[in-house]
Amino acid sequence: MNEKKLVSAHFHPKLGVYWLVSGAIIITITVVGIPLLLLWFPVGLLAVRRYIANMSAELTEKRLIVRKGLLTRTENTVPLDKITDMALIQGPLMRLFGIYQLTVETAGQSGTGSLINLVGVVDVQAFREQVLLQKSLLTDRQSTVVDNVDIDQLLLENLQQMNATLQRIEQVLTPHSPQ
């Protein structure tokens, strides 16, 4: 799998602050968790920084590879020809920070929801366009190969039919020797 890496995603510098604020809002809403806010920011800041450091998204010639995780690290490798949808989502808090969530859905995916969720990719529209462009190029290349195989098969069949016809004509034109 030594494919050429075409694009690597970089993550928004405000992503950590977005996650901290999101967590703080959830903790505050629970009311019981308000005293935990004193622990949330220092511990959360450390966890968020490590999590973001472990995140990566790479586009190769044939695949999208996404790595992330803090305690449990996951790597999702999605063949480009299996991608069916790439949606951009931006909630109100995300809009405040200028951050988007990119979801990737694939053919044959089981369950509901998306296979991959990437939050905070810098210039997410350009990254999405690059993935879709590469998917399109790969699909075009594969259809060209299929077309060439079809054309070669048709040519072979036509040549075989022409050969059979010429042999029949040759048999008819060849004089029969009297016995």
Rank of each mutant, 00 (worst) to 15 (best):
L37E: 09
S8H: 14
G98P: 04
K14F: 08
F41T: 10
H12F: 05
L6T: 07
L132R: 07
S114L: 01
E61W: 00
I65H: 05
A87E: 07
V122F: 03
T103N: 11
Y100N: 15
K135Q: 15
V7S: 03
P178C: 00
T28C: 11
N117P: 00
L137D: 09
E58L: 08
W40G: 03
R73C: 05
Q179T: 00
Q90K: 08
M55K: 10
N148D: 12
L154T: 12
L88G: 15
V146K: 11
G91R: 04
M162L: 12
A9H: 12
G108W: 02
K62V: 05
L46K: 14
F127W: 10
T60C: 06
V119F: 07
L88W: 13
A24V: 05
Y18H: 13
D81K: 07
S114K: 05
L80A: 08
N148P: 00
L38G: 02
L138H: 08
Y51P: 01
L37W: 10
A57T: 00
T165A: 14
K5F: 00
V104P: 07
D152T: 05
L36R: 01
V149Q: 09
I52L: 14
P178M: 04
Q90V: 04
K62Q: 10
N54K: 09
V131R: 14
L64D: 03
E58M: 07
I65M: 05
S8A: 15
V124S: 15
E3V: 01
A87T: 14
I99V: 12
L173C: 06
F127M: 11
L96N: 09
Q142K: 06
T72Q: 07
Q160I: 02
E105P: 01
R168G: 01
Q109P: 02
V131N: 07
L80Q: 07
I29S: 02
Q171S: 12
L138D: 02
I89D: 06
T84W: 01
V78D: 04
L137E: 11
V131Q: 10
S177Q: 09
Y18L: 14
K68R: 13
I34L: 11
N54R: 11
G44T: 10
Q134W: 04
L93Y: 00
A47I: 06
L155P: 00
T30E: 11
Y100K: 15
Q101N: 11
Y18F: 14
T106V: 14
V124D: 14
Q153L: 03
I29N: 01
E58H: 13
I99D: 07
L133E: 15
D81F: 06
T28E: 05
Q142C: 00
L118S: 09
L138S: 13
L70G: 03
S8L: 13
L45T: 15
